[in-house]
Amino acid sequence: MTTTVPRRVRKSPAATPELPVGLDIASIMPPIPPGADGVSATVAEIAAPRPPSLDSAAPQAAGWVNNRMITHLWSYDSSTGVWVWVDGVGWKRLSPASESGHTHLTALATMATHDNLPVDYHEDASGRIDQLLV
């Protein structure tokens, strides 16, 4: 008897809720600066990424990045120790600027990961995510 091994089914990003036609997010709070690439990212068939090295050099700041998927989360025993894996980009640390802000970014990143929702995010000068739109 042949056993059929179920193939792994790749989850598709959830449909994005409709926004009002012509909504210009840059014109309302919070502002979204121009310059993002707007390239649609997909969930890549990749091996689970390895946790980031905490002493690695800070990556190049990229400003605003649009429409990316967060596929993995990682945290260590620090109140501001959460990193997220951005598909096609790599590990990004959530900014530790404040504990509550860090928690809020984590909440949004968790939702985005759980529900396969694309995100827009902004990196600070050290390459850490300091603004997140889901």
Binding site: E18, P96, S98, G101, L105, L108, D124, Q131, L133, V134
Partner: peptide, 18 residues
């Protein structure tokens, strides 16, 4: 109504809902 977007920054107490 629906919350269509959520936004937060690393600052204290700075969360937004669309």
């Amino acid at each position: 109504q629906r919350a269509l977007r959520l936004f937060a920054t690393a600052n204290d107490a700075n969360g937004w809902a669309y």
